[in-house]
Write a protein that binds this DNA or RNA. Structure first.
Lengths: 207, 207
DNA sequence: GTGCAATTGCACGGTGCTGTGCAAGTTCAT
DNA sequence: ATGAACTTGCACAGCACCGTGCAATTGCAC
């Protein structure tokens, strides 16, 4: 062990990484994908997967952890130093979009029942932020909705999922999807369409 | 057979009905619910369920058929004779809400992969209607969205699901949910919040 | 009560998945 | 080339489920 205890990407680590990546894609396509399907898709034998992850649940759990971490980071970074609620929502959604597009699995799995508890718990902080933000916006009159802030947070989540599906089905161009999703989220919160479009153009254009 | 060939609800029919009802609830809670779980929940033995439905798939298929039929009917009836796109959407969503609330299973199942094809096919006519409606609204300038009509249809579907979840979790009152959902759908399509609220009040209040 | 339909209880065979064990390769650094 | 880590290829036990068969039983109608 001369200099390879950390940052070492032996083929073992490479395999582990590829298994995770492939598992993500495979589980997205079919939340019930078996370990064998995942292994084969990763160009590896089932037994090897068990060499890296002790159980199916452990594999998924790792996936979820990675996804949540990425989402929380993106959200925090996007909103760093922004005070205006509308702009905050816009930046947040745009940033989340980039990550979530890759981790669509999360939403697919969140729809299921058994594992749902763990995921919801782990996503709680993210959702709490969003709710707080929406509440401020509603009180300030920037937003306007018959729905209370927590329900609006649900709406935002599902809305992103809908746009992702639309992208999957080729109804929306990938490079437009993020902005379109953001505008839709803002208008769904009761912001005038013109203001929302303008804000998003400003926020995403000036990058 | 004196007078009971039709409209006869022998305990056989009663059981069949209860099995369907319970299966709906049970599958909503867990899309992977086994035949045994369903049977027990219906106060019946597994073997009996197979007496009514030849396979798990047949049972679910019956459920889906009933749900789709109810949805299509509600939609058609709600929009009968209404020409204005916005009002049409409003009436349609309100009507669909009543039915969909009971058939949340559909959306839960639609999220899954295997059975998805059949369901999507059967829902196609309903979605086609909605898309056409949205397209007209967009062209007329009543709606305004960066998303094309088909993508907006996805958004509407998922949005209803989000509100249903919010209701489930006690974040929104059931008797307000339909109207709130409708307003949110309209604003998400780019309609000003004030117009949407007004329209929904008018359409749903004057019943 | 007699008869018919439906329900029950149990016992199969079949299938597909999970997680484990172990011996035989393979790959890579030293 | 030697050793260590990793991978492979099988084989196995366990489990949960599906769909079916059949004999016994229950409930309802007449």
């Amino acid at each position: 062990m001369t200099a390879m205890t950390t940052g070492n990407s032996s083929r073992a680590d490479t395999n582990r990484r590829r298994i995770l990546d492939v598992a993500l894609a495979e589980l997205l396509r079919d939340p019930d994908a078996s370990m064998d399907q995942i292994a084969r898709a990763a160009g590896v034998v089932r037994r090897t997967v068990y060499g890296h992850f002790p159980s199916r649940e452990a594999l998924i759990s790792t996936l979820v952890d990675e996804a949540v971490e990425a989402l929380v980071d993106a959200d925090a970074q996007a909103r760093h130093g922004v005070t205006d609620p509308a702009e905050s929502v816009a930046r947040s959604v745009l940033a989340l979009w980039e990550v979530a597009d890759r981790y669509r699995l999360l939403i697919a799995l969140a729809q299921r029942t058994v594992t749902v508890q763990g995921i919801r718990e782990r996503l709680a902080p993210l959702r709490a932020n969003k709710v707080e933000l929406l509440r401020r916006g509603l009180e300030a009159g920037v937003f306007s909705s018959p729905l209370p802030a927590p329900a609006l947070a649900y709406v935002h989540e599902q809305l992103l999922f809908a746009v992702m599906e639309a992208v999957n089905d080729g109804l929306v161009a990938v490079d437009e999807a993020g902005r379109s999703a953001t505008v839709t989220v803002l208008t769904a919160a009761g912001m005038p369409a013109s203001s929302a479009t303008e804000l998003v153009a400003e926020v995403s254009g000036g990058s």
